[in-house]
Amino acid sequence: MRLILVGPPGAGKGTQAARLVENYDIPQLSTGDMLRAAVAARTPVGLKAKEVMDAGGLVSDEIVVGIIRDRIAEDDAKKGFILDGFPRTLAQAEALDVMLKSGNLELDAVIELRVDQTKLVDRIIKRAEDAKAAGEPVRKDDDPEVFKQRLEAYNRDTAVIVPYYEKAGLLSVIDGMQSIDEVTASIETVLQGLDEKV
Rank of each mutant, 00 (worst) to 15 (best):
G7A: 08
I82K: 10
V64P: 03
I4C: 03
T189L: 14
A153C: 06
P137G: 10
P137Y: 13
Q28H: 13
M34D: 05
E22L: 15
D33M: 01
G32F: 08
S30D: 10
A131H: 01
E74I: 00
V64A: 13
D122G: 08
F147H: 10
P44Y: 08
E196H: 05
S172T: 06
V183Y: 07
I174G: 01
A128W: 08
A49D: 04
R2A: 07
G46A: 11
D175S: 07
A128D: 11
T118K: 10
V65W: 13
D70N: 03
Y154N: 02
R123S: 10
F81E: 12
G80E: 09
V59K: 07
A38L: 12
A40R: 04
A131P: 04
L171E: 08
D54H: 01
K48C: 08
D61N: 10
A128Q: 05
S102P: 06
K148P: 00
A93E: 07
F147S: 03
D76E: 12
G103P: 01
V59N: 02
P8S: 14
R2L: 14
L3Q: 06
L47C: 05
L194N: 06
S102Y: 04
V6L: 11
Y165Q: 08
S186C: 11
A109P: 05
S172E: 11
V52E: 09
I67K: 06
S186R: 13
D84R: 01
A77C: 11
E62W: 08
L90S: 04
A109M: 09
G80A: 15
F81C: 05
T89F: 12
V173C: 07
A11F: 11
A109I: 05
G46K: 11
E188Q: 12
A11K: 04
V65Y: 13
K13L: 10
I72T: 00
S172W: 05
A95Y: 06
V52N: 13
A128F: 02
L96R: 03
S30N: 11
L191M: 06
N23I: 05
S60C: 02
V45E: 14
I125R: 14
R156P: 00
I72H: 07
E166W: 12
I161D: 07
T89A: 10
R69F: 05
L107G: 07
D116N: 15
Y164W: 12
L90F: 12
G46T: 03
R150H: 09
L47R: 02
A159P: 00
P27Q: 06
